[in-house]
Amino acid sequence: MGLEGLNQLYRQVVLDAAVDQRYRGQLLNPTAVQLAHNPNCGDVLELQIKVSDRHITAIAFQGQGCTISQASASILADLALHQSLESMQTRISQFQKMITGKESVEIDQLGDASVFSKISQFPTRVKCAGLAWDALEQMLKNNQFD
């Protein structure tokens, strides 16, 4: 593959998203909080959401991590804001299928997140890309949001 692979992995939109500050930090009175941990590198990410009428009305994350995990969290936050929990469920499942590359999948609803469509070529980084998404998936599983 060589170094040209770097440009595939670190597209400009990824590099920009990694330093995007809009969703960094904590929410006041979040409806749900979820920690996600990447045991390979020790990175920890905390995701918080506010839910009203089964829609995500606010979202934030904090934690240290690599370019890929931070960018993916930013992109997820931007995508999830104002979306219904049900539609996020679909997107999470699309995203997870896309990054593992196990089956071809519709990515029409993933927006900027489709930038990670080639990440299965970098198996050691799939976990980084999926970290925030796994956290949101856990949140949706663990909470009723009624």
């Binding site: 593959m1 060589g2 170094l3 370019t67 890929i68 050691t124 980084r125 980084c128």
Partner: peptide, 21 residues
């Protein structure tokens, strides 16, 4: 630069190093 980002560049250059804790 996060160690995982560093080790990905090394990986693409054919240099096997470890990144993590």
């Amino acid at each position: 630069i996060h160690p995982h980002d560093v080790s990905t560049v090394f990986d693409l250059d054919g240099v096997a190093i470890r990144a993590g804790h």
